[in-house]
Amino acid sequence: MVPFEKPQQDQRPISRAQRIQLVFITFALLYAIIGNYSWVVQQREYFPIYSWDLFSYIPAHTADFAIRITAINGETLDPPLFFNEATKYIPAAQTIEAFALLQRFGNAVYTDSTEADALQQQFEALYLQQLDAIDYELVIRTFDAIDYAQSGTVDQIIPLQSFHR
């Protein structure tokens, strides 16, 4: 006599469609894990995997690295121009790619990173190569974003290093 009847189980094998879905779910989970691990721990991205940490924080009172150009092609600029205002000389000055590379370059200089020289070379090769000569300084700006956008008010400009090319 069998004391307990074995419960009936669903014996249907998993279908191909379900297997495909499981693969996609697994990939999506791995995507999220790798994307966030590489972003948070390694501070890097493995294209096309990303954490999607975009606009996550409100930059009410913030700071950024900027380039202040003091002379271009032998002509002194008074007042100096910020890099993203110099579209007359540098057509790609307003691109977000230039801004992002500038932040990496500025951060490398600020932290005395070994990457600083390579990033400087990359930045100059991409954006300053067409100029005969340029004098610029890397600075940190601190500001309230709305005040700065409305009236141009900057709390502080801290020079980090000057460059000549």
């Binding site: 606009f55 409100i58 930059p59 993203n84 579209t87 000055a93 307003q94 691109t95």
Partner: peptide, 13 residues
């Protein structure tokens, strides 16, 4: 508005 302002400062657009 802060996000928008910050972005306009980054690219000057």
């Amino acid at each position: 508005a802060y996000q928008v302002a910050n972005r306009t400062l980054q690219t000057n657009t």
